[in-house]
Design a protein around this nucleic acid. Sequence first.
DNA 1: TTTCGTTATATAAACAAATATACAACGAAA
DNA 2: TTTCGTTGTATATTTGTTTATATAACGAAA
Lengths: 112, 112
Amino acid sequence: MMSYKIKSRIWIEGKKGTFLAEGRVALMKQIIETGSISSAAKAMKMSYKKAWEIIDGMNKEAKKPLVVRVSGGKGGGGTQVTEEGIKAIKLFDKLNKKCQKYLDKEVSKLDL
Amino acid sequence: MMSYKIKSRIWIEGKKGTFLAEGRVALMKQIIETGSISSAAKAMKMSYKKAWEIIDGMNKEAKKPLVVRVSGGKGGGGTQVTEEGIKAIKLFDKLNKKCQKYLDKEVSKLDL
DNA sequence: TTTCGTTATATAAACAAATATACAACGAAA
DNA sequence: TTTCGTTGTATATTTGTTTATATAACGAAA
């Protein structure tokens, strides 16, 4: 009857805290677009502090850094997403889609 | 290498809001144990108001009530989880386990 | 050496969420 | 009719989270 919808949220945890999650991936995508944490935060209407903390926490859980930050220099510096970061984005998006697809299939068997 | 763990959270949405979710199911289980919203809330160290709102929201999204509440009467009244409620608990727990199992399997292929 | 806009950091202010408190309504049983 | 502990509801308080603000550090390039 399609009365109900199943929703899900996934995230990946490292030893001390969250590694990858939806917001983190979205922020990385925005950094790719804009070239810096500050402009990415602005575009997402997020405070710089929060954005910085997300990036910092993510890098601390990563084996190789997902983003590299440069302070000072031409234009004041900036932040770049590494190859590892791009891999992480793709991995997360893929897992997320698979999870939702699986759940939709399971629920469709159930006539809720 | 087992460095990372995948985590997930699922919930079921009705037309106007959340129907089933982890906290709601836990509360129903506690109501089965204790026989009332107030004592269940106390046992879970949750405010009565929050517990009441959870139950209210859940019943509003349910086709048949998952809990029946009686105010007044012997002992002041109480709350009981219906057969529908018990079915809902089992359904949710099963879906939740399946989801986590699926994700663990997917992640195990990935050598994170 | 000066300039630039960024990163990095601390603290204050604003906002949101949860809790605590109080009290009316309820109705079966004594 | 009175009693009981619950449900139901509103409001004030507390707590926690998020944002805003300010400022130092940075370092390549002009």
